[in-house]
């Protein structure tokens, strides 16, 4: 029993790592304050669910989820390219409400609030699925490490530190911001797909706002612009989140209590240790 519990935790940690890492690429490395990351996770989850329920094999649905999320991500980056800082943050946050509205109302595609049940497992055995998500998570760590240390990654960081300077050095900052968002949201979509195939269910509550705070606290506690930080951040905060389950006796307020703890931790980090554990930059 404890074994199954551990497998479940490690599976979620792997998936969350992909989500937080990909968020780090846009916020930590490129300086784009995207608060709507969950939208791309959700797009991936829905895309994968709909395809899989229509008999498309998983290796296609998972890939298609990444591509679709990435197309949306690139489009959003293109539209919002002139926005910065808190404006971009608010607009991307607004995307969450669009996503909720569409997923609730496009009944013929999403079944609205009822959600989509019966999404097939990729791998029946939970332990093997855990290994599978860990492998994809490790792959994303490797790819993001390569990306952020490449010439393109350096240009992302130059844009973060000073977009005007990057442009007068001949860098097409518009193009690179789109690339950053596209790469990030591709993996957000993949993570969404892994989540959908794991939970076997997706509904509009995937776009819950508190998930943004969860992601941000994992990201910032780990540290912006640090790959190691993101992975460690997810580990520690997921462990904290799980331990709340054992501390709070009343099961009906576990969720609320967890949100409160995460919010407080986020605020404390922002005040006292804005660079988190491994962070290299401030936002």
């Amino acid at each position: 029993m404890i074994h199954e519990y551990l497998i479940s935790i490690l599976t979620f940690i792997s998936i969350y790592s992909i989500i937080v890492l990909s968020l780090n690429v846009v916020i930590g490395f490129t300086g784009l304050i995207n608060l709507g990351h969950i939208v791309f996770v959700g797009i991936g989850a829905y895309a994968s669910a709909i395809l899989a329920l229509n008999g498309v094999p998983w290796y296609i649905s998972i890939f298609a989820a990444g591509i679709l999320a990435s197309v949306f991500g690139a489009a959003i980056a293109a539209i919002t390219s002139r926005l910065k800082g808190d404006y971009l943050a608010m607009v991307t946050l607004g995307l969450v409400f669009i996503a909720v509205a569409v997923s609730r109302n496009w009944i013929s595609l999403t079944r609205g609030a009822l959600g989509l049940p019966g999404i097939p497992d990729i791998i029946k055995n939970n332990f093997h699925y855990m290994i599978f998500t860990m492998a994809i998570s490790a792959l994303s760590v490797f790819l993001f490490y390569r990306l952020t240390n490449s010439e393109t990654g350096k240009i992302f960081q130059a844009i973060r530190d000073n977009e005007v300077a990057a442009s007068v050095l001949g860098k097409n900052t518009y193009f690179y911001k789109i690339i950053s968002m596209a790469a990030s949201t591709f993996f957000a979509g993949i993570a969404g797909s892994l989540l959908a195939h794991h939970l076997n269910f997706v509904d509009p509550t995937i776009f819950e706002l508190d998930f943004i705070v969860t992601m941000l606290v994992m990201l910032i506690a780990g540290g912006l612009a640090s790959i190691t930080g993101s992975v460690v951040g997810v580990f520690i905060l997921y462990a904290l989140s799980e331990s709340i389950r054992f501390i709070v006796v009343n099961p009906s307020i576990v969720g609320a209590f967890r949100e409160m703890v995460f919010a407080v931790v986020l605020i404390l980090i922002l005040i006292f240790r804005p660079r988190g554990m491994f962070g290299k930059v401030d936002i």
Partner: peptide, 18 residues
């Protein structure tokens, strides 16, 4: 920065709702 303050206000909103 104002972005950091904004994020902390988002955390306060989530905290209060919870």
């Amino acid at each position: 920065t104002n972005v950091v303050t904004m994020i902390s206000s988002l955390a306060l909103l989530i905290f209060s709702s919870a």
